[in-house]
Amino acid sequence: MGVIIAKSVNEACAVLAENPATTVLAGGTDLMVQANRGTQSLESVLDLSRIPELKKWALEGSEIVFGAGISYTDLADPQIAALVPALTQAARTVGSPQIRNAGTLGGNLATASPAGDTIPVLVAMDAVLQLKSSTENREVAIADFITGVKTNALQAGEIIQSITMPVFQGPQEFLKVGTRNAMVISVVSLALVTDYSGRKLRVGVGSVSPVPFRATEAEEFISKEFDWETNSSLSEKVINKFSELVADATKPIDDHRGTAEYRKHAVGVLAKRALERVCAGERL
């Protein structure tokens, strides 16, 4: 049946309902790599890249909602950067300008790679995905959406419509280790999100386990230690303990991009540095 370029979410869902085996194409930055290698056949394709509603974002009360088709480049919007800085930071580390123009937030989630750059941020913020099929709308927490290495909870006929997350008050940091200074797959990544009103520091980590996750024990510890009135610097002991707790929570593997030992070490370093930056940051 070739390629269907959907113009609306409803149209896309209808196409999928009729032919659930259709391959869904968003930015193409992962899918086409497989197609070019001959490991993915694309006999029937549903292209979501030209659905205007999927490219929008909006502030809805205390939450921000992104259409799944928003590109990494679009996430650099200064208005978005002011609301969810870590997401903008993470988006800028993705691939190259070419990749950032094509790749989408929804695509990053659907691919569900342990190294997906935006995922630690979304995990830290407990983002929720709005999934849609021709018959059902449902919401899935990000922790439940990514089910394993490159597997997700999408059911036949479903697409990711949007991603929603709270807008937290307070500084945010995203850091990613790669052995090259640009255009590199993450060896380790970490997002630290401050929530002043909830008095919580949230930590998401990537490339250190099959699925990016929140380091909850480290969060509990640091949220108690953090000086919520002044944001002032923490003792070295506290920072190190936080760093240790983050590292201890990970289960990295050895591969050609880095050893497990290095990943565990590096994620601790990132935790420490992110925390130091947050402490040094302006009290909002």
């Binding site: 930071q89 800028r92 580390t93 940091e173 995203f174 850091l175 990613k176 280790v177 790669g178 090259r180 200074n181 640009a182 255009m183 590199v184 993450s186 990544s189 370093v269 990132l270 540095r273 130091e276 930056r277």
Partner: peptide, 16 residues
């Protein structure tokens, strides 16, 4: 930050 080791990954501050 982009000019420091780690580049686009924002991993380093001058003191590191």
């Amino acid at each position: 930050q982009m000019e420091l080791p780690g580049g686009a990954g924002r991993t380093a501050d001058p003191k590191n």
